[in-house]
Computed example of a mutant assay.
Amino acid sequence: MAYPSIAIPGQPLGLSSQYASGPGTHVQNAHICASILGPVVEYAQDTKASSGKTRDSPPPVLSVQRSAQLVSNDAALTNVLPEVDAVVLARVTRINPRQATVAILVVGETVCSDEFQGLIRVQDVRATEKDKVKIFSSFRPGDIVRAQVISLGDQSNYYLSTAGNHLGVVMATSDGGNTMYPISWKEFKDPVTGVTESRKVAKPF
């Protein structure tokens, strides 16, 4: 499988039979998966063992760099602006009963050099039963969300939507500080404590 140029936590990158797991990745169900947000890098393993003997050709290593490492030259500093219909990754910064405020980190596959502020209003969380949506059951501060830009909004905010199966929370940390995994379209589970927490979950890749 072809791996993406930018990975989000939990995203499969390749088969563990074809690649070795490097920094920023882990192995799950025979797949190399991203553990952090950032660009995917492939490199060859050292073909010499500690004894100095050449080993059989080992599989290449897949790793994920932290997104801050992208800004390595002047070209990388050119910021990309979110546009209507663009899919973005954002971090939830605060919530209230009417909306979640987020900081947009990635537009498409381009990591932003500056953060843009966006809003996910309660009516834009999901496509059905909008009158039953509760922001506090959908998002928590610190969550990483995949969303779609639906309006350029006002001068300070982009309006975003998670009303799609592929949109919603892609990474969440439990109250106990552990990275959780999705178990349904509306719940994440803490692998350490076993406690579940409500979220508007994005369908995994």
Rank of each mutant, 00 (worst) to 15 (best):
T54S: 13
V192D: 03
D85M: 13
L160M: 09
G10F: 03
E109M: 07
Y43A: 07
C33Q: 03
V192T: 08
S72V: 08
R126P: 07
P191W: 06
S51W: 06
D56F: 08
I6D: 08
I32D: 00
I120L: 10
L62W: 05
Q99T: 11
I183D: 07
Q69N: 14
P58K: 15
Q117E: 12
D85G: 01
R66L: 12
S21Y: 00
L160E: 11
R94I: 03
G194H: 08
R94P: 00
H26V: 01
P4W: 08
F116N: 11
F139S: 09
H26I: 01
P9K: 10
E129S: 14
S72A: 12
K186P: 00
L167R: 02
D190E: 03
R146G: 05
Y43M: 05
K134V: 12
Q99R: 14
T173E: 09
D124P: 04
V64F: 09
K132L: 14
L62P: 04
L77K: 13
V102C: 12
V195M: 01
L70N: 13
V71F: 15
A20V: 00
V71N: 10
V170H: 03
A30I: 00
V61R: 05
F139G: 09
E115H: 13
S5V: 09
T78R: 08
N165V: 11
K186S: 13
P97R: 13
K203G: 00
I135F: 11
I150P: 07
G176W: 01
G176T: 01
G118H: 07
D114I: 13
Q99C: 13
G168E: 07
C33H: 01
M180V: 04
G164V: 04
R91L: 10
S198A: 05
P82V: 07
T128Q: 15
D143M: 06
E197A: 11
V106D: 12
S72I: 10
L105Y: 05
S63D: 00
Q155S: 15
T110V: 14
V88S: 10
K203L: 06
R94H: 06
V61C: 11
I6C: 12
D143C: 08
P12T: 01
K48R: 15
R94M: 09
A2Y: 14
R66A: 11
K189N: 01
I150D: 05
K53I: 03
A202I: 01
V133F: 07
S5R: 08
G168M: 05
P191M: 06
P39F: 07
T78Q: 08
Y158D: 11
T25G: 02
T110E: 13
T196D: 00
